[in-house]
Structure formats: structure tokens, C-alpha cells
Computed example of a mutant assay.
Amino acid sequence: MEIKLKLGDLLSINQTLCLIIDDVQTTDFILKFKLLGIMKAFEPFVSNFEVIKNEKIIEYGKETEKGSFKISSGDRQAIENFNRDLEKLVNNEVSVNADKLKANEIFDKGIKAEYLIRLYSIIENQK
């Protein structure tokens, strides 16, 4: 199944999936396996985002003494340009080849409500 999401939503969902999977006490192993499959489908998008973000840090930042690049908190123009570029990126819609979660797979599994709300767009509406 194809899931369409804004890249920013995908990144947020991916972060939430990590939190759920790392919470050993509340998630059963079958659900963890399913969540890991979704994360695997998200992986190329997350990786590509990180590449572009790092390129933008190099573009707008300055090299530090240690050889890495950083955007100075005092460089308002660089921060605005960086944020503008990343905002354009995270607002792009992407299509992910993954199955949505079924309500009975995710509810009543000890997952915090705040996490369930973040996952709402990948939970299948059962009619």
C-alpha cells in the first residue's frame, strides 16, 4: 500500500516509531516488527533529508576550528535561509510503500496517547 505524507510528517512519525520501539516494556514483539518495517520503508527519505540538511549547513554555515560546519546563532540571514530551504523540503509530499497500521494492532498495547496522535496519519481508518 502507498502512504502519502509530507516529508516533515514522515520525519516526525519516524522519530515517534523509534520512541515506541525503544520502550521495551510497553510494546509487544509482533508490533515492534511491524513498526520496524515501516521505519525501513521511511529510511531512504530520512537519509536523504539528512544529506540535504547537512549540505545546507555547509552552504550557510562556517567551518569551525575542528573542521565541521556550523551556522552561528548570531547569523540571522544564514538561519533564515537555512530554515526557508528546509521548510520547502519538509513540505514536499512523498509516497512511501508501506502498510498502514490497523487500529487493533496499535491500540491497547500500552502506547502513550501522545504517540498515537503522532501516528494518526498511518493508522488505517476501519469502516
Rank of each mutant, 00 (worst) to 15 (best):
M1K: 06
L7R: 05
L7F: 02
L7C: 07
L7P: 07
L10T: 03
L11Q: 09
L11W: 10
S12G: 02
I13E: 05
N14G: 11
Q15M: 12
Q15V: 03
T16N: 12
L17T: 13
L19S: 14
I21K: 05
D22K: 14
T26G: 10
T26W: 00
I30R: 06
L31I: 09
L31E: 06
L35E: 09
L36S: 12
I38R: 03
A41G: 04
A41L: 07
A41S: 15
A41K: 12
F45T: 09
F49I: 07
K53L: 01
N54Y: 02
Y60Q: 01
G61L: 12
G61C: 06
K62A: 12
T64L: 12
T64A: 08
E65A: 15
S68W: 01
F69V: 07
K70N: 11
S73W: 04
G74V: 05
D75P: 00
D75G: 06
Q77E: 13
A78W: 10
I79F: 03
E80F: 12
E80P: 00
E80Q: 12
N81A: 15
F82Y: 15
N83V: 09
N83E: 14
N83C: 02
R84Q: 08
R84C: 03
D85M: 01
D85Y: 08
L86P: 01
E87K: 15
E87Y: 13
K88A: 09
K88S: 13
L89M: 13
V90R: 06
N91H: 09
S95Q: 07
V96K: 07
N97V: 14
A98S: 13
D99N: 13
A103V: 12
N104P: 01
N104M: 03
I106Y: 03
F107G: 01
F107R: 08
K109Q: 15
K112Q: 13
K112D: 15
A113Y: 05
A113P: 02
L116H: 11
I117L: 12
I117N: 04
R118F: 00
S121H: 11
S121W: 03
I122L: 10
I123W: 04
N125D: 11
N125K: 14
